[in-house]
């Protein structure tokens, strides 16, 4: 089962290794990972999606909390959050299909960020489901390349 957790961590070298190493030692794979600095430049936010059973996931959260460089762990299985991913699709576009693709891009409220002779590059943000749906639509035209970020998430409401 997929779980999303997010952590505020010291913005220092070696911290990411501690986090990924800890997950790896428990024997499961990180499905996605996103890291970026926060409003406080000494802290980074790390959001990871892991595939693990309940007990193993709980143990990972506890072990994360033990890391000295980890300030706070948010378990987004337990609290409501807003989450987004960003993706770039490079889609084959011939004279005939180009128009259809542009229509689709509009429907999905995505953006065309590069136009080539035989391709369109499309930028989209959204939940994983929405991006998966887009991907399957674009597959009919032929996807040449995909670059997709890890999920980022924030808890809903006014709380920290």
């Amino acid at each position: 089962m997929l779980h999303t957790l997010s952590m505020l961590v010291d913005n220092k070298f070696g911290v990411l290794t501690r986090i990924t190493g800890l997950v790896a030692r428990r024997g499961f794979n990180i499905e996605s990972l996103a890291v970026g600095v926060t409003e406080d430049p000494t802290l980074s936010r790390v959001t990871i999606v892991v595939d693990a059973d309940e007990a193993a996931y709980e143990q990972v959260i506890k072990q994360m909390n033990k890391l000295i460089n980890v300030h706070k762990v948010y378990d987004f299985d337990k609290e409501a959050c807003v989450d987004r991913e960003l993706v770039l699709f490079k889609v084959s576009a011939t004279g005939e299909t180009r128009h259809e693709i542009i229509e689709l891009v509009n429907v999905f409220r995505a953006k065309i960020v590069d136009v080539g002779k035989t391709t369109l590059t499309i930028e989209a943000t959204g939940t994983a489901d929405k991006l998966d749906a887009m991907e399957s639509m674009f597959r009919t035209y032929g996807i040449k390349e995909i670059a997709r970020t890890g999920k980022i998430a924030l808890s809903r409401g006014a709380r920290d």
Binding site: G14, T17, R18, G21, L22, R25, I68
Partner: peptide
Amino acid sequence: FAGITLPITKHGYL
């Protein structure tokens, strides 16, 4: 050494 000891220490400093 800082890397090697990550899984076997409570914490570490370089």
